[in-house]
Simulated scan of single mutants.
Amino acid sequence: MDIRPNSNKIVKTKDKRKKSVQSFRSQRFIFLSLTPILSLFILFFAIPIIWGLFLSLFQYNPLQLTSPFIGLENFKELLADDIFVKTLMNTFQFVLVAVTVNIGLTLLIALGINKIKSDFFRNTFRLVYFLPCIAPLAGSAVVWSTIFNSQSGLFNVVLEKMGFEGVMWLTDPTIAMYSIVLMTLWADMGFNIVIFLAGIDSIPETFYEAAVLDGANGWDRFKYVTFPLLNRTTLFVMIMTCLSYFQMFPQFQILTKGEPQNQTRVLALDIYDHAFLYMNMGYASAIATVLFLIILAITIIQLRLGRSKWEY
């Protein structure tokens, strides 16, 4: 009597059970690994967003016993608020100028550092540019407030020594925003320089060798090799920088408090003032909701425009 078919069935059954046990163990490991991260995400990200959206529908003041439901009145008030419109325009101006200059400068600096042959000097320059990122942004803003001082600040002292008049860095409505952009770039460029350097180092050398054989000069190698292959790195840098700059607060609070004439008032500062100075947290939550939607929309647009299907 031939018993091999039954033996094959038993072996297949054992294999299926073994694979099922391995799959269960693998899924259990993944579940146990992701649960703490997911819990932190829900606790510190999802719940605050939902709670902020909920508060924006109320006239909420923590010092009052009642918080009447007012629906979309806070958002209607935003549209009629000239200061909010000005604040919104200031925020976009700051992000557009700061992000554009940041990415342009950091890419150029990263390319320059990458050309240095000595590992010691390359690491030294990388460290020097990254050091300001370590310092708290609020502390850096305090230091820069003394540098921007119109009477005894470093910049005006140097200008006067050179025979020029001092500049009202933080009190001139036409200059104040660009002064904050300058301080922000100094404090934040190091991070993007390191990211760009990592992206440049990851490009295979064979592409450059092929370009040289084809007679490409330095500009052609950057235009047709480096820049296209940095597409994903540039996308990451752009998204992270935009997210960061839309939420910038310490330097605006410390350097100008939104002055002069609300020329440096941005959304994050406006949220803080309405929430903790005026105790109008419902209105502040409405502003925060607008900021969240702006960041979400810009991130989605950047991700769609930055799609790439190539690999190397």
Rank of each mutant, 00 (worst) to 15 (best):
P48V: 11
A135I: 15
F130R: 10
P136D: 02
N74W: 03
E77Q: 15
F130A: 03
F69I: 00
L127P: 05
I113T: 04
D119E: 08
G112R: 06
K86A: 11
F69T: 00
L57P: 02
E77P: 01
N114S: 12
P136L: 05
W51A: 05
L55D: 00
S118R: 12
F58A: 00
Q59A: 02
K117L: 04
F92S: 07
A46T: 13
I116R: 06
K115Q: 13
Q93D: 00
E73P: 00
E77V: 03
P48F: 11
L53P: 09
N90E: 04
G71W: 03
V99Y: 10
F45W: 12
I49G: 02
V85I: 15
L105S: 04
K117F: 06
L127A: 14
I134N: 07
T91Q: 08
G104E: 03
V101I: 15
V99T: 14
P62G: 03
D81W: 12
L79N: 08
F120D: 02
T106V: 11
N61S: 13
G71N: 06
S67E: 00
Q64M: 11
C133N: 13
E77W: 04
N90Y: 05
A135W: 13
Y60K: 02
L111V: 09
Y129H: 07
N61F: 09
V128N: 02
I50M: 06
F125A: 10
T91L: 09
F84Y: 14
L78H: 05
T87F: 08
I50N: 00
E73M: 08
L96T: 15
F58H: 00
V85L: 15
F94R: 07
V101P: 02
N102M: 08
L43I: 13
T106E: 03
N74S: 10
N114H: 15
F69S: 02
V99R: 10
R122V: 07
Y60P: 05
R122Y: 10
D82K: 15
Q93I: 11
F44L: 10
L43E: 04
P48H: 01
P48C: 07
I70R: 02
D82P: 04
L65R: 12
A46E: 05
T87K: 04
V95I: 12
L107M: 12
L78K: 05
N61W: 04
F41W: 14
T124P: 04
A98T: 12
L43S: 11
P48G: 08
L79W: 15
L72D: 01
T91W: 12
V128P: 01
A110T: 07
L127Y: 07
F44D: 03
I70Y: 09
F92T: 12
F69A: 00
P68V: 05
F92V: 13
G104K: 05
T124N: 05
F121Q: 04
W51Q: 03
L65Y: 08
L72I: 11
G112A: 15
L105A: 09
F54I: 04
F44H: 10
I42H: 02
F92W: 13
I113P: 09
L53D: 01
I113N: 07
F130G: 08
D119W: 11
L65P: 00
L65C: 01
N114A: 07
G52R: 09
L79A: 14
Q93T: 13
N123I: 07
S118E: 06
P62F: 06
T91V: 10
Y60A: 05
V97T: 11
D119K: 14
